[in-house]
Simulated assay, not measured.
Amino acid sequence: MKNMWKPLLFSFIALNSVSVANAQEKKDSLKSEAPKPKEFKIFNKKATIGALLVGDYANSLTKDVDMNGKHNPTASDNGFYLVYFRVNGKFAINDKLSAQILVNFADFKNDPKNKVLEIAALKWTPSTYFNVQVGQFRPYFGLEDMYPAEIMKSYAWSNQYSLLGKSNWESFQIGAAVSGSLSKKKIPLRYYYTFYNGNGKNQVQDNDDAKNHALRLEYDLLPKLQLGVNKALTKIDNQNASMFGADISYNANLSKLWKAGFNTEFKYGTNIYAFSAATLAGKDVSDYKMTGFYIIPFISRAINESNKSFIEFTCRYEYLEDVNKNGNVGRFYTPMLSYVMGEDYTSKISLVGVISDYNKDVANSTQYSSNLLLLQYQIRF
């Protein structure tokens, strides 16, 4: 009887050892399958290349006005025009450091000097609260600076954007910017500060000691309603110049098929372009103020869910006074009907009306009342 207990005891000890070993193996297995914390990698290179092609056929409906809306009795009143052939490269060195290059080959049709290269910038994003960008890019100063050309709601940038670009408040500039978001703190606020030369793109060096300072704040009043405010400062001929802006954007889903909203923007400040062009002795920068305002309501209806196609109608109204009191007031009406494929506007074809109404028509210039009809096409790949 005593001899029988020995093998039983040995068997119990052996089974218990196997059980403990199996349990430890499962525990180790679970450890190995658990997700590892994300580690910062010095190098994790990725590259993406994209392209955008935009062109149009324009027909002037006004006598002695050419296809570009300029008063020119000897020029063609209709023809094809290539707006953009942009190639965009984004190069990520790791999850925090990246570079972007954007060139517009369509500018080779004119004098390409200081034109073709649009963006060449390096971006460091250590957190959502603080990001740094250096190089050539569009300074963050206004609603139109916050999205690329391919998704804008009209056929071209607003006239105020073009005027502020000539004054080097907006459009492509060389400088640095810091930005961030407080969304992680449950505060719907974003900030952008840009410090730049203010003398245009692709310049060898700055043309004076003054620099431009631009601050933009965005606040989400509601989930679909955003308010933006902007302020920019600089000096020109040792005189203080400034620009103020405010904008509102709204975008809502009315139903499964219908979407609607609007973008609107106001700008008031120094027209540096007009001030620099003036030849008056002792000119005062305070005499060269401009005022601009536009609103673009839009509505769209989904057509085909498989290719994400939809029809969109927009109509931009714009008021622009290039120099207050002594300048020329222009009012612009731009209805546009588009057929779009892809939520990110992969392809689009648009029928556009461009109606310009100036208080004073200036011969041999674009400040001339006219009516144009455009057929525009766009492809992204």
Score class of each variant (00 low, 15 high):
N104H: 06
G330K: 02
L374Q: 04
L222P: 02
I101W: 10
V352Q: 01
I248M: 09
F40T: 00
W124P: 04
Y147W: 06
L102G: 00
A21Q: 14
Y219Q: 09
F12G: 05
G342A: 04
Y319V: 13
V54L: 04
K36A: 15
P139C: 03
F313I: 06
P139I: 02
S306M: 07
V103L: 10
K90P: 01
L189V: 12
Y219N: 04
Y273T: 12
P37I: 01
N44H: 10
N59F: 05
D107A: 04
G292L: 12
K46I: 09
F43V: 08
K201T: 01
N364F: 13
I42K: 03
A232W: 05
K2W: 09
K41Q: 08
G200I: 02
I236A: 02
E25Q: 14
A149C: 04
M341I: 11
G55D: 03
A99G: 11
K26Q: 13
K184V: 05
L217V: 02
I13N: 12
A278S: 15
Y192P: 02
D56A: 04
V134N: 01
F298P: 02
N253R: 12
R380G: 01
K2P: 09
L30G: 15
R316W: 01
G228S: 09
I13A: 13
F85K: 12
V329R: 00
L61Q: 07
A176I: 00
Y81H: 12
G198Y: 00
N78C: 01
F12T: 13
K109C: 06
H71G: 03
L189M: 10
F293V: 14
Y358L: 13
T125G: 00
E144W: 06
T74M: 00
N364Q: 09
L351V: 14
K115A: 13
K267W: 14
K27T: 11
F310I: 06
K27D: 13
L117A: 09
G327Y: 02
K289A: 15
L227I: 04
A99C: 10
L52G: 00
Q367C: 11
L374K: 01
N371S: 13
S179M: 12
K90A: 05
P126L: 06
K113E: 14
V18G: 06
D357R: 11
D237E: 15
L122P: 01
